[in-house]
Computed example of a mutant assay.
Amino acid sequence: MSELPGIDLQHWQAQGRTMTFAGQPIRYWLAGAADAEPLLLIHGFPTASWDWHRLWAPLAGRYRLIACDMLGFGYSAKPRGHAYSLLEQADLQQVLLAQVGEQRPVHVLAHDYGDSVAQELIARHLEGRLQLASCVFLNGGLFPETHHPVRVQKLLLGPLGPLIGRLFSRRKLAQSFARILGPHTQASEAELDALWQLIEHNNGLAVMHRLIRYMPERRQQRERWVAAMQATHVPMRVIDGAVDPISGAHMVARYRELITAADTVLLEGIGHYPQLEAPDQVLAHYLQFRDLPEAVACSAEHC
């Protein structure tokens, strides 16, 4: 899938640390020099922060990396019966920053579900509740009207959601990924095994139907989030796998309609997980964005 070697899941797990959020254990990761500019990485659904493993070492050479498995994901707690919320996941990111003692304006790199959390952080930045320095979105449902969920997501949201979650399997994960990744950047069996371990860990299948409530929550928050993106001076870029059927080129077209002077990059032939499918391209476009004068100025001036 990539020329960047990445990190083995077992080694990744061993590098994690634990904090408490809302009475639940949360796993998080740090890398890079403490005095380097802070970069918060926010993963997507239904996976975890290991999604960033191919970019982790290259980015850690320039930035202080901060990432967690959000509540209900990966190696973090997955409480059954919990009312999972994107707003709560944004709270978690702020608690994480406090946990690691990060008080400077933070850069954000987000994907999928994490894009919605990042949108909430942009709204909070405008409200003076935290300071962002920049935000880069990978494939995600920034606008509900352009989000095309896969069949299993629709089923999870329906009345049979709890059953659908319990019946989800490694084979169904492979089928879903085959549809959403690029035709020439399909996941290896080893990668699918790792992703499945993260989803299944700690009885994760039992909460999938609760996590999926982010889709109606996105609709509820749409006007607030889009207004914040239109009003903010925080530099933003979209780096998007063009052939992603969920949030590909059609989402980028909508972004260009709604965001003035939209900064967008389309990765031809790449699907929903560009950080796994084409991490070398994502890295190059991310570093180029960070070197832009407006991004550097925003970091220095706190936007």
Score class of each variant (00 low, 15 high):
S76E: 11
R151I: 13
I122L: 13
L121A: 07
F21W: 13
L97C: 02
L142T: 01
A14I: 05
V252R: 00
Q13V: 02
A228Y: 08
D8I: 03
L266N: 00
N139G: 10
Q197S: 05
E217D: 07
I66L: 11
F168K: 10
D51M: 12
L96F: 02
R17C: 15
F137V: 06
G248T: 11
H233Q: 14
A178P: 00
P293I: 08
E145N: 09
R17S: 14
D244N: 10
D8M: 04
N203L: 00
L121S: 00
I270V: 15
P159A: 14
F289D: 11
Y28D: 04
R104I: 06
S116V: 05
V238I: 13
G32Y: 05
R179H: 13
Y214N: 10
L276R: 07
S85K: 01
V152E: 12
P216E: 05
H184F: 09
D69Q: 04
G241V: 09
R218M: 11
L167F: 08
S85Q: 05
S169W: 09
L59I: 04
E191S: 07
H302S: 14
A123K: 07
R54I: 10
A187W: 09
E127Q: 15
M229D: 03
A133G: 12
R170V: 07
S247Q: 12
F289H: 06
P58A: 10
P38Y: 09
C135A: 15
P279F: 07
E102I: 00
M70K: 11
R254N: 06
Q153I: 09
G204R: 12
V265H: 03
G165E: 03
G128C: 02
A77V: 05
N139I: 06
